[in-house]
């Protein structure tokens, strides 16, 4: 579904850096990441596992694992407020209300000890003025909105009494319950089977259409990206190596990594494709290459690629929409 070009930016991430500490050293696992998201827009965040995309998602909520990691720098502007400057207390009022997240595994992301109704109601009671008595009715309404059949009946059920697809809808219901501006969906369909996946994606799109929320869709599945995303950001070794409109990237990927990822996806809007395996492994956190991070695996790399970090090269499309990539090869174009 097309995005209104006049839509305002709701989330602006600037130079976000999150470090992971290993013993006494700190390493940037999210490295100077900048993103923006418009109302009603879906931004795909794509990369191999370990590329830092999930950590980026958690950094936006300032929920990186304590002790092990910390948000070291940058800004996350949501509706003009820098979330990284908020106190934990203030941040709690933002989480779940203005920015929310759908976790990867519906099997484990619901608390087994509480009924689904109470888990939906909890977010409502924290962030809205729905009275205690009305929480259950509100939860039923949420379940209805995520297309759970017989919600009056399901509201008292426990997670273990539900199927995986239904649980993931409940997770979705929790995420949208307070009508947030932004939802981060971290591989929300990975553990669902194909038909359920399709239903769930349709659901997300419908909900987006209803509420106008911005979605950051973290995935490694280009097939899904093609279906749901307006724009794409490709991550490698903690950096965004390419970003731009989906069709543009599919048609003319700027970065060899993107090209390699797209290698097995035949065509846009075609059948879904999985990330192809690229020879070699992403670099370890503590052993990143000096130059282009992708250089050791890049078939096109030359000496400069190995020694000097490439800058960002803008290649906007005819409509002037942003498209850039980090690759020396673009210097000559």
């Amino acid at each position: 579904m097309p995005l209104d070009p006049q839509s305002e930016v709701v989330l602006e991430v600037r130079n976000l850096t999150t470090t992971i500490s290993i013993r006494t050293d700190e390493f940037a696992a999210v490295d100077n990441v900048s993103l923006s998201l418009k109302r009603g827009e879906t931004l795909g965040l794509v990369g191999e596992s370990g590329s830092g995309k999930s950590l980026t998602g958690l950094s936006l909520l300032n929920l990186v694992p304590k002790h092990a990691a910390r948000v070291a720098g940058g800004a996350v502007m949501l509706d003009g407020v820098d979330l990284l400057q908020l106190s934990e207390r203030e941040m709690r009022r933002v989480r779940g209300k203005k920015i929310s997240m759908i976790l990867q595994d519906p099997q484990t992301s619901l608390n087994p000890s509480f009924s689904v109704g109470s888990q939906i109601g909890e977010a409502l009671s924290l962030h809205t003025d729905v009275p205690k008595k009305g929480l259950k009715a509100a939860a039923v309404e949420m379940l209805r909105r995520v297309r759970v059949a017989a919600p009056e009946h399901r509201v008292d059920a426990y997670p273990h009494q539900m199927s995986g697809g239904m649980r993931q809808r409940v997770v979705g219901a929790i995420a949208i319950s307070c009508a947030p501006d932004v939802i981060i969906a971290d591989e929300p369909t990975t553990s669902l089977d194909v038909t359920v996946q399709a239903q769930y994606i349709r659901l997300l799109q419908e909900l987006q259409a209803e509420t106008g929320m911005g979605i950051i869709f973290i995935t490694h599945d280009f097939g899904i990206v093609a279906k749901v995303c307006h724009r794409l950001a490709v991550m490698y070794a903690g950096q965004i190596v390419e970003t731009g409109p989906v069709e543009r990237i599919f048609d003319a990927p700027g970065h060899p990594y993107t090209q390699a990822l797209l290698g097995s996806v035949p065509k846009l809007h075609g059948q879904q494709g999985r990330l192809p395996s690229i020879s070699g492994n992403p670099p370890a956190l503590w052993n990143k290459p000096k130059g282009c991070k992708f250089a050791p695996r890049c078939p096109l790399a030359d000496t400069r690629c190995h020694t000097e970090e490439p800058p960002v090269y803008d290649t906007p499309d005819q409509d002037g929409r942003e498209h850039w990539a980090r690759c020396w090869r673009l210097e000559t174009q």
């Binding site: 929310s100 976790l103 595994d105 992301s109 619901l110 929790i174």
Partner: peptide
């Protein structure tokens, strides 16, 4: 370490 604890935090539940 469980995901549902993470989800609770995501919801804005106090520590």
């Amino acid at each position: 370490d469980a995901e549902y604890v993470k989800l609770a935090r995501v919801k804005g539940v106090s520590e």
